[in-house]
Write a protein that binds this DNA or RNA. Structure first.
Lengths: 108, 108
DNA sequence: GTTATATTTGGTTAAACATGCAAATAACCA
DNA sequence: TGGTTATTTGCATGTTTAACCAAATATAAC
């Protein structure tokens, strides 16, 4: 017995977490946390994949409301739309630390 | 130019986020936040999927170090291993709120 | 207008994920 | 021992994801 609202709430949260749940996208967010805005070409260098791949990662972050973009000239600049990432990552890190402490190896 | 440590750090974080990035697993975490420990059978009722499916979701959360389990008798009890989920979800919620405010509909 | 640059989108392919059913385990009960 | 309950695992299936290349779009420069 679950209300439609409840279901949507969990799906919405999951969608946002999923948007963050990829090494390249985490790296993009980290890079955007250092500098107000960065163009796709610079972000592509950071990631080291094909630009089309990076563009799709950025689309996912934008669809989740984590970043926003603005085109100026022939370049597209992305910036973070969310300020609380630091506390979120602090939590993730505490999981990591706890895993390491207890020798629970998460990464294969 | 990326060190092995850096790569592993992002992969580790992504793995934890991915473990959380599913509606059923978020619901499991929410349920476990209300009560010290809950058996698989009760969690299965909360989710409403096949018990085998719920068991696999729980394995994923455990592999990421988010929950831990203990068998007592014929039942297996799961409990949260992480205490900071509240601030993590607060961040996710702030993204949701921001999205709603700006009429950026995240959910199809 | 033509050419070059930045970015996104279409198409394809391989890998990962989610799910349910059935079978395997394990513990308890009679 | 044999039967019941709780949980996990093997297997099959359909869905989603990630990646790259190539093509489309858009803007700037000449």
């Amino acid at each position: 017995m679950e209300s439609r609202e409840t279901r949507i709430r969990y799906e919405t949260r999951a969608k946002i977490l999923k948007a963050l749940a990829h090494p390249s996208r985490l790296k993009l967010v980290d890079r955007l946390a250092e500098q107000e805005e960065v163009c796709v070409c610079d972000l592509t260098e950071v990631i080291g994949s094909d630009m089309s791949t990076v563009s799709r990662h950025l689309s996912q972050l934008r669809a989740a409301g984590i970043v926003e973009s603005e085109k100026r000239g022939q370049m597209v600049y992305y910036r973070l739309r969310v300020k609380c990432l630091k506390s979120l990552f602090a939590c993730i890190e505490s999981v990591v630390k706890c895993n390491v402490d207890e020798h629970l190896i998460v990464l294969s």
